[in-house]
Simulated assay, not measured.
Amino acid sequence: MADLSFYVSPLSEEIREEGRAEGRAEGRAENILIVLGARRIDVAHATREKITTCRDPELLRGWLLRSAVVATAEEIFGEDAPSEQ
């Protein structure tokens, strides 16, 4: 019988959690671009790159909330953007 202890080990759980966090980050980045696109806001290549390469789900969450109210895509990054209420 095969040793399956790795699949219940702390290392295995850490790897799974990293995968889940990466998936959340990718999903939020995609959602930001969807919201900006739906609002017909142009997204420069550099801005798109910054959004899609970010791996911090909480930072992306803030950007997603801001994407619903900003006038330009770049405003999602600024301190002067509307707060996430």
Rank of each mutant, 00 (worst) to 15 (best):
R16E: 15
A44P: 09
E13L: 13
E13H: 14
E13K: 13
T53Q: 07
A44E: 15
V70W: 02
D3Q: 06
S83H: 13
E84K: 10
S67M: 05
G37V: 02
I34C: 00
R24Y: 10
G62F: 07
E17S: 11
F77R: 05
R66N: 06
P82G: 14
Q85N: 15
I76R: 02
T52E: 12
T52G: 12
E49N: 15
I32F: 01
R20D: 10
R28M: 05
P10I: 05
F6D: 02
L64V: 04
E84M: 11
D3M: 03
P82T: 12
T52W: 00
R61P: 00
R24Q: 06
M1L: 08
P57Y: 03
E49W: 02
S67E: 09
R40H: 12
A38I: 05
R55N: 03
K50T: 08
S9W: 00
R16G: 08
E75Y: 04
A25M: 00
A44F: 12
R48Y: 11
E22V: 00
G37L: 03
E30Y: 07
A68I: 09
S9I: 03
E30G: 05
L65P: 01
R40T: 12
L60N: 06
E17V: 15
P10D: 04
E75A: 10
D80V: 08
Q85S: 12
L60F: 10
G62T: 07
E74S: 06
A68N: 07
W63S: 00
E14F: 12
R61D: 09
S83L: 13
P57V: 00
E26N: 05
V70K: 01
P57H: 03
T53L: 03
P82C: 11
A2Y: 08
V69R: 13
L4D: 06
E26T: 02
E58C: 04
F77C: 11
V70A: 02
V69W: 07
G19L: 05
V8G: 14
I32G: 00
E14L: 15
A21L: 13
F6K: 02
S83V: 06
D42N: 13
E14R: 14
G37N: 09
M1T: 13
E18R: 15
A68Y: 11
A38S: 10
